[in-house]
Nucleic acid binder design. Structure first.
Lengths: 149, 149
DNA sequence: TTCAGTGCAAAGACTTTGCACTCAG
DNA sequence: CTGAGTGCAAAGTCTTTGCACTGAA
């Protein structure tokens, strides 16, 4: 992973600095969709000199390179996800976590997606390049807590 | 519409001030999904004394009352929509407009939605209350401009 | 060696808070 | 009349900008 990100950066004409590598690995090794502030805090022990500013700039660079995806969940800050494959997010109104939703069991998810994109193109004439689907509700853990049978 | 919003506010225990009514009507009479600043600017002639702050507070109140829906499109500010029925939004990367997408021609849209909500409940145990689907791409007008046959 | 990248501080954009005044009920 | 709501100013939060220094290539 270390080698991969280093190579990707260099091939894109960017320098593979320790800060960039650390920020990328932090994102790649979590499922928590952290915001810049959290990434910064996680790296503070390892990189006491790291500035929040650098985290912001780096995440912006990564987004432009397509290494990372920005999530706007309406919480007032941006979250980041190193999983750039199209997938859905679930925001729990109780604990505030953002969870991944994989439609592994949904056989025809790709077909549904293609159908809707085609519908928008044919009915309105818009070209869809990307989408963001964020579900909101109560996650399994918070439901258990409220109703511990 | 004037009477309706007045009654809705009073029934919810809120005062029907001219500012609130004007802000609601502004939102109800546009499809542009304006942010607080735009609502403020639109009302400036009619209400020279109106403060941006009041627009923010009012929109917050409306959101809590379910009169208005907040949209986070990742543009750095919140947009508002008086159409609270579940529908999709399309953000044009070229002109920046946010358009409504109605799935009128999609017979089984409700079924698709119910199926996915059911899938998330059954596979992960999360309860989905709401969702936000934002498409991104190039709108019909911007496509025409680029390629005016 | 050289300039892309970092870190610091300051500024910027959007939104919220605090408080005295006002007007809807 | 009376307190919910307004408007002003100030503060807060997240993010970006400017610039001199540093270290990756």
């Amino acid at each position: 992973m270390y080698v991969a990100i280093t190579r990707t950066l260099r091939e894109a004409g960017f320098r593979a600095t320790p800060q960039r590598i650390a920020i990328y690995l932090t994102l790649a090794n979590t499922r928590a969709h952290p915001c810049a502030e959290i990434v910064y805090q996680k790296l503070h022990d390892e990189f006491p000199s790291l500035s929040l500013n650098t985290v912001y700039k780096t995440l912006q660079t990564f987004e432009e390179l397509g290494l990372v995806r920005r999530l706007d969940t309406g919480e007032g800050m941006c979250r980041y996800d190193a999983n750039t494959a199209p997938h859905t997010h679930f925001l729990c109104k109780a604990c505030g976590r953002v969870l991944d939703i994989e439609y592994e069991g949904v056989q025809n998810m790709g077909a549904i997606r293609d159908y809707l994109v085609g519908y928008v193109r044919d009915s309105a004439g818009h070209m869809v390049c990307d989408y963001s689907l964020i579900l909101q509700g109560y996650c399994n853990e918070c439901i258990k807590e409220r109703d511990p049978r």
